[in-house]
Design a protein around this nucleic acid. Structure first.
Lengths: 193, 193
DNA sequence: AAAAAGCATTGACATTTGTCAACGCTTTTT
DNA sequence: AAAAAGCGTTGACAAATGTCAATGCTTTTT
């Protein structure tokens, strides 16, 4: 059950994990099942866990005064679901994270993760690399959001994240792009011609 | 001349740097002066250096087909100026970074930085912490950009970055927020009432 | 099987934001 | 001292996007 996680880690680090390290990881990550719509994190709670997605799809979003949902992140297999701000700062999260599809996770608490990092140097290295890539991806998205029209942003999105485009309904994607579902509907209609 | 950098690093890590480590850092970071408008990085080049700002102000921006500038980052004292994507991936940058004011930097190449990190564990820890905070800040900005109107974004900006608001002209801030200078001008006029 | 909920689309219209051009003021350059 | 460049503002108008309401279709729930 934990193989995808081990594979994921080994892809990040130069030297493979030892058998000992693998065992440690396997015992530290707990399997958890979420049914569709079930919360992984609810706004107001402190985010205690990080989840590695084995199967399924999740979303992170905030809710405004009028009940509108604003999607900040989408997650599928091999993504990590968490609110780092809340988890690191121990502050109540302003986000909800929930399952969009029935989802199978491997979860670990921040305390256990820090513990693991002390015992397995390769994990520290992995996280450093992940943070680098995460920073780069986030920067691109930010840059695109600031500079481009909704149409251009959708094009880039469809190009860069075909998986998301297939897996999530349009109104979710619209929110992820920062436009209304009606606008996205019209953009897509346009671009067919 | 290097004290602000040493102070900066010591604030990040639990145990202070040893005298030996300080020396190593001081010899690894080269002072560099940029005059107003001088490029630190020009689009098309691979970003080789990271600069720690001792004094001055800089900006990172892309230029579109019509010559329009889109500000992605602003930097002042105690900020790090670099294009991580280019620096890490060794790809030509799509951004310019230049000095908005006359600026005094301490620069280090990526190779030398990696070398330093091997020799000074505290630096690895610092970068991990910086990455965390960077990820959090970036997420907030992204979340705000997607979810809020231009007016709300400006409010948050003025709240969170009063230093930038004082130091950079309005048309730069407008671009940073993803609106035109005319729109920002009107927003500010509104909010006086 | 019927009812309800979720999803995408469309039209009409309102609001926000962008574009272009002009102006006045200040700072910088010559 | 004169000229040029930079900056912020304003008005008129255009374009992009949001809002609201209605519809039809599909999926889920009862």
């Amino acid at each position: 059950m934990h193989e995808p996680l081990i594979t994921y880690i080994n892809q990040y680090v130069s030297s493979s994990l030892t058998g000992e390290e693998e065992k440690l990881i396997i015992t530290s990550f707990q399997p958890k099942r979420l049914r569709k719509k079930q919360y992984f994190l609810q706004a107001g709670e402190v985010c205690k866990n990080t989840g590695f997605i084995l199967e399924g799809a999740m979303r992170q979003y905030s809710v405004d005064d009028k009940g509108g949902e604003h999607i900040v992140h989408l997650y599928i297999e091999n993504y990590w679901a968490t609110d780092r701000e809340s988890s690191i700062m121990l502050t109540p999260s302003i986000y909800n994270i929930d399952a969009w599809e029935d989802t199978q996770l491997l979860i670990i608490s921040r305390a256990n993760m820090l513990d693991l990092m002390n015992k397995i140097p390769a994990l520290v290295e992995m996280i450093r690399l992940m943070d680098e890539r995460y920073a780069i991806a986030n920067n691109r998205r930010l840059s695109s959001t600031i500079s481009n029209t909704a149409e251009k942003r959708y094009e880039e999105f469809a190009q860069n994240h075909p998986q998301f485009n297939l897996r999530f309904p349009q109104h979710i994607i619209a929110s992820y792009l920062g436009v209304t579902k009606e606008t996205l509907s019209r953009i897509r209609k346009q671009s067919l011609k």
